[in-house]
Design a protein around this nucleic acid. Sequence first.
DNA 1: ACCTTGACCTTGG
DNA 2: CCCAAGGCCAAGG
Length: 107
Amino acid sequence: MDDEYVESVLSLVERIPPGRAMAYGAVAEVVGARLGRGGPRQVGAVMAAFGASVPWWRVVTASGRLPPGREVAALRELVAEGTPLVTDGTRVDMRHASWRPSADHEH
DNA sequence: ACCTTGACCTTGG
DNA sequence: CCCAAGGCCAAGG
């Protein structure tokens, strides 16, 4: 993974609005459409290494599971910004929270 | 080149 | 809801 890929992922994550979320796979699709490479696992790798500098808690699994090892911290942020959660309150309700960047404002 | 390892995803039982 | 299997992409040994 080069800097271009890392930057692409991080800048996208920064654009996810509070109260919304994106799955690793969704991030991979958007970035992949631009750079022609990378999958969900690459996004996960970027988040693991550099996620600290962005709102990492807004990136979850396709089923709404929180990042391994950071569940507590993530939940605190998610609740604070009113992100839709499933009934048990342990996962994000991706049906309502899922966000995708609007087509405009590409570079 | 082969195998293993991941903040993954989808499907099927 | 949990688990296993297969598919996935890239890095590292």
